[in-house]
Design a protein around this nucleic acid. Structure first.
Length: 490
RNA sequence: GGGGGCAUCGCCAAGUGGUAAGGCAACGGAUUGCAAAUCCGUUAUCCCCGGUUCAAAUCCGGGUGCCCCCUCCA
């Protein structure tokens, strides 16, 4: 079935057709590494991860790039503005480089916690200054950029008529807004910096225009070109990037190459926390690290951040995260149930024998509806509904043998698109002889109705992070420590 | 001041003209030594007002509330 995505460029949901058949090249605007990424950042990044997983599941080959902005950019448009990296550096009494390194590290910690697939490239701005300079030179040669006496180089909007197409900001509207600061250096208030000269800046590079540093927008144009080419399929970012960042990228890239830049733009809506904007003042800023410290699993956070459509507002709350934790636990439970109902050795969900035709029909129907939902501009709510139905069917029918294996295989396939229940089964399958011995002892105690001893053993194991689950077919157990990030609540 | 978006059960959230998916919570029941898991059942007329239509949560107009962008920001 055809994939349909919303395209910011046309403001419509339209068929997604890669430029090269069977291959998707996509770029995501990544973090500026001057502070710990918060869960709002991860919501946006998760759109990229979902696209990667979904497109690969659809059988497409994906080349994925996410930049790391480690050059500081100005806090405001004023010439003497201090950039964020340097502001953070001054505060921590470290260099801008050390700050960037530290927060890059934290960013990757967050990715691992949330179970991101690693992109193929994470280019850093600081190691691509040469490419940026080369692109600015091309723009200069083409007459799209100009240098002013201070040494700064600007992109001249008037020379790029398509400016404003992505955001819908027309020149008149922008001029009508009284918020554009007048910079006498610029020929037009909308012109934006390609290269800046500022002796106070820590990060400096030599360039044809003097020692300085690149403007904010040029890195994405230069790096996407290097890794994906002058034209590529998908570009994502937060909704705030539409203007001016992506608008400027288009101007630079298309101005330099003369070719269409990006086929399809997708923007993620900002996350709300407790129904309002996240802010340090309100104390509602959550990070991957802070939630992990509270005992939440990365998978639950994934669910909490992905359960609403990417273009709809999503209100994050700790209560919602608790709910997500339950959903993940339910997934793991049914996975374990199916694994033990399948033949031994089928724990990984690979069916040896063929399932019954009734089961095959059911699974194919579920799979088809799941796919149709995501094909429709990533309708995750419907996809989760199908997934939950698939889980319900497994619990209701309690399939055995090949049917159980096939059912589990489908669930694992669908979960993998959301990045869920990927590792927990393997560790759960490892039976600890010591634990088993205690379970056997408890079983013996229960048989002679010595419930006091039985409960002692339950408590003993619980203290070691192992929970016993009595069922008709025997005792199962699970370790809360198996859960990524632990589970402090149990 | 300009532009864009959203408002559906207690909470989260699908549905964009044909008579309200799903999840969580709650309640009732099954199962259970206890506990958990699981299963069955119950629970909304869609922010307000007006209009179009045989028919509207879905379209139009007017309110109200909230969010985003125009400035660094995912």
């Amino acid at each position: 079935m055809a994939i349909r995505f919303h395209n910011t460029l046309t403001r419509r949901v339209e068929e997604f057709v890669p430029g090269r058949p069977g291959e998707v090249r996509m770029y995501h605007c990544g973090p500026t590494v001057y502070s710990t990424p918060h869960i709002g950042n991860y919501r946006t990044f998760l759109l990229g991860d979902l696209l990667r997983r979904f497109l690969e599941w659809k059988g497409l080959r994906v080349l994925q790039v996410m930049n790391l902005t480690d050059v500081g950019h100005l806090l405001d448009d004023a010439e003497e503005g201090e950039d964020k990296l340097e502001a953070a550096a001054k505060k921590a009494k470290k260099t801008a480089w050390e700050i960037a390194e530290h927060y890059t590290q934290e960013f990757f910690e967050g990715l691992d916690y949330l179970g991101f697939k690693r992109a193929h490239h994470y280019p850093k701005a600081t190691t691509h200054v040469a490419e940026m300079i080369a692109m600015i030179e091309v723009l200069e040669q083409k007459g799209l950029a100009y240098k002013v006496p201070s040494g700064n180089v600007y992109f001249e909007i008037a020379k790029f008529p398509a400016y404003g197409r992505l955001s819908g900001n027309t020149a008149e509207e922008l001029e009508a807004g009284a918020r554009i600061e007048v910079n006498p250096e610029k020929r037009d208030p909308r012109d934006f910096a390609l290269w800046k000269i500022d002796a106070h800046h820590q990060m400096q590079w030599d360039s044809p225009w003097g020692r300085g540093f690149p403007g904010w927008h040029i890195e994405c144009s230069a790096m996407s070109k290097k890794y994906l080419g002058e034209s590529f399929d998908l570009h994502t970012g937060g909704e705030d990037n539409v203007f001016p960042h992506h608008e400027c990228e288009i101007a630079q890239s298309e101005g330099a190459s003369g070719k269409p830049f990006v086929r399809h733009w997708m923007h993620a809506r900002h996350l709300l926390v407790d129904a309002t904007k996240m802010s340090k003042r309100l104390g509602n800023v959550h990070t991957a690290q802070s939630l992990r410290a509270k005992g939440y699993s990365g998978e639950a956070l994934r669910v909490a951040l992905q359960k609403a459509h990417y273009r709809e507002p999503l209100n994050f709350t700790l209560a919602g995260l608790d709910e997500a934790e339950k959903k993940v636990a339910r997934y793991r439970d049914v996975a374990e149930r199916l694994a033990s109902a399948a033949a031994p050795g089928a724990a990984t969900g690979t069916a040896a024998a063929a399932p019954s035709s009734a089961m095959a029909t059911l699974l194919s129907d579920l799979r088809g509806r799941f796919e149709a939902a995501l094909d429709d501009d990533l309708n995750v709510s419907v996809a989760f509904a199908v997934l939950d139905e698939a889980v319900g069917e497994a619990n209701r029918r309690a399939p055995q043998g090949a049917d159980a294996a096939a059912h589990l295989a489908l669930l694992r396939e669908l979960w993998s698109v959301f990045g869920l229940v990927e590792k927990s089964l393997e560790s759960a399958a490892l039976a600890d002889a010591q634990v088993q011995a205690l379970i056997d002892e408890r079983e013996a105690a229960r048989k002679r109705r010595d419930f006091k001893r039985a409960d002692e053993i339950r408590v003993l194991l619980k203290e070691r992070g192992i929970e016993l689950l009595d069922g008709k077919d025997g005792v199962r157990f699970k370790r809360s420590s198996d859960r990524p990030g632990g589970d402090a609540k149990s």
